[in-house]
Design a protein around this nucleic acid. Sequence first.
DNA 1: CCATTATATGTATATATTAGTATATACTCA
DNA 2: TGAGTATATACTAATATATACATATAATGG
Lengths: 108, 108
Amino acid sequence: MEDNKEQVEIKNKDLDEETLFVVSQTFKALGDPTRIRILNLLFHNEFSVNGIAETLHLRQSTVSHQLRFLKNLRLVKYRREGTTLYYSHDDEHVMNMLRQTIEHACHI
Amino acid sequence: MEDNKEQVEIKNKDLDEETLFVVSQTFKALGDPTRIRILNLLFHNEFSVNGIAETLHLRQSTVSHQLRFLKNLRLVKYRREGTTLYYSHDDEHVMNMLRQTIEHACHI
DNA sequence: CCATTATATGTATATATTAGTATATACTCA
DNA sequence: TGAGTATATACTAATATATACATATAATGG
């Protein structure tokens, strides 16, 4: 108990390298308009790579690059169907943050 | 009612330029380790610019640069006392997101 | 196996970001 | 008013990022 409390306080004083990296990477993922548009598209439905590209008027390679970024952070996952990969979101916490911030920005 | 619902649906389909900018800027603010450390320091107390610099072992100009960034987004505010400026956080929503994500990353 | 389609990757490049040095500004007090 | 202190800003170099084009890989149907 005591130890745990102290741990938290130490962490509040200065964050360790790894936490800092994970947290900043997570937010960085949401810090780009293209990635936000992709995640926003994946709110309710899954989409293929080309589906995303066509819907958002982006190049296939752009989408693929960004999906790799998001996949590395486990913010999206995919399932294969033949040659097509269907991507969907994979982190409720991050998606909730995104939704809240979008709503906040929209003054809804 | 009907209209409002439809509005939301349209926004979910593709976000307007301004929302996209605001949201991405907000997350970008949290997407840098130095800014995270500064905001984390300001969780409970206010700090002067030099106070932040000394505590986090950063240059004064680095801190000042980042504080300007955070101030532009209204994530921090300051009060003056003589020549000293005391900075504190100024956005509960963003600070909550930061805290939650740090805790999430720490596995607390 | 070959052609076709969907996706991923390598590489180049333009742009953005970070943080350093030096300097300017703002305030206080003697 | 001038020295001293706290902070902000200009300018710059190093680095990171985003995305375009070209190409590679993977799966499928014939």
